[in-house]
């Protein structure tokens, strides 16, 4: 439709929303186009009700509430570990605190969880270690969701050779186990930070999301509302972003949330093997790795970082489970 309003036209523009006719006399056409091309009010309401439904469902689930509370707490610890302890996680006192056992009377104090083989407060190290795990987990998840989501969307939407090429690339990455590939990749870096580890995991991990997204897009693409949108001349990007994406994103969110816990485990495993994070980053994986030397005499050195790690992974997996149950109508 050409721009019918001449800038020099002295007549006022019709008030917005009242487009029953325009000055070119195309009576009724504007409003008709509005409703045809943008069946959005109704559609949005439908979308809102799906997510609103899920949200209403989630708020009633104890598993969701517990895991969400746990994750909020973990996030606060990761951002402000100093709020919970005055102890310095890097300060060693080998004379007084070498492998001292947990002291439960020292409530929330430096000696609460005992001291490790270098005389450092385990409580402080557990708190400060949260940051590395959470950062890697969130960064990798965000990266794989964007990268894998884009690849899956392109492959699923366009099909044909784009799908063939992208699917083969995904197959190639699937053939290489995540941990093994990350070991080889990270071995090339002499200095490894959370960003290096996150890069390696994202580089090898995006294919999982790509497969899920591709499958979801393939299903949604067949839906009547997509066909209708296409028939009415909606462009590729509009179809993808407004029609397909909101309806195909649910399984991706579920898989990504559950995978988040997996990435945290992968980071800890790499750090445990000595090819992940390294000093000065404080990491549960590194602490567990150094605790294995004293496991027979002082198992608490291993217990606390391991418990913190497991609890973090548990929180994200429970969250993913709850979100899946809420979003999957088949399980209702």
């Amino acid at each position: 439709m050409p721009d019918v309003h001449d800038e020099n036209d002295p007549r006022p523009l019709p008030p917005p929303g009242s487009g029953h006719f325009d000055y070119a006399g195309n009576q009724g056409l504007l409003v008709e186009q509005d409703t045809l091309l943008e069946p959005d009010p109704a559609k949005r309401e439908e979308a809102r009700s799906l997510w609103g439904d899920a949200w209403r469902d989630l708020r009633r689930r104890p598993i969701f509430l517990i895991s969400a509370a746990l994750i909020v707490l973990l996030l606060i610890i990761a951002i402000f570990p100093g709020l919970f302890t005055n102890a310095n996680p890097r300060q060693s006192d080998l004379v007084h605190n070498y492998l001292r056992k947990p002291d439960w009377t020292d409530f929330f104090g430096a000696g609460w969880f005992g001291y490790d083989g270098q005389g450092r407060s385990i409580y402080a190290r557990v708190l400060y270690g949260a940051r590395a795990s959470i950062t890697v987990g969130l960064t990798v998840t965000l990266a794989v969701t964007l990268l894998g989501g884009l690849a899956g969307m392109l492959a699923g939407y366009f099909g044909g050779w784009a799908d063939a090429v992208l699917s083969r690339i995904v197959d190639i990455f699937f053939g290489i186990p995540l941990l093994l590939g990350a070991l080889v990749l990270l071995n090339a870096f002499t200095v490894r930070t959370v960003w290096t580890v996150a890069f390696a995991l994202a580089f090898l991990g995006w294919t999982q999301i790509a497969r899920v997204m591709r499958g979801a897009v393939l299903t949604v693409k067949q839906a009547d509302y997509v066909v209708a949108g296409k028939a009415l001349g909606a462009g590729t990007s509009r179809l993808m972003l407004r029609h397909i994406l909101p309806n195909a994103i649910a399984p991706v969110i579920v898989v990504a949330t559950i995978a988040l816990g997996g990435y945290i485990t992968a980071e800890a495993t790499l750090s445990f093997l000595g090819i992940g994070l390294q000093d000065p980053t404080i990491s549960w994986g590194v602490d567990i790795s150094s605790a294995q030397k004293v496991i027979r005499t002082a198992s608490f050195v291993l217990f606390f970082p391991a418990a913190a790690l497991s609890l973090t992974v548990l929180a994200f997996i429970m969250l993913g489970d709850a979100v899946r149950d809420a979003l999957d109508p088949k399980l209702r």
């Binding site: 294995q292 027979r296 198992s299 291993l302 609890l311 992974v313 548990l314 997996i317």
Partner: peptide, 22 residues
């Protein structure tokens, strides 16, 4: 299963080794 999934395999390995072997 939730507990098993959450505990990383290297922690599980050490626990199993300590409990059943040592």
């Amino acid at each position: 299963t939730l507990v098993v999934i959450s505990i990383p395999v290297f922690v599980l390995g050490y626990i199993a080794q300590t409990v059943f072997a040592i």
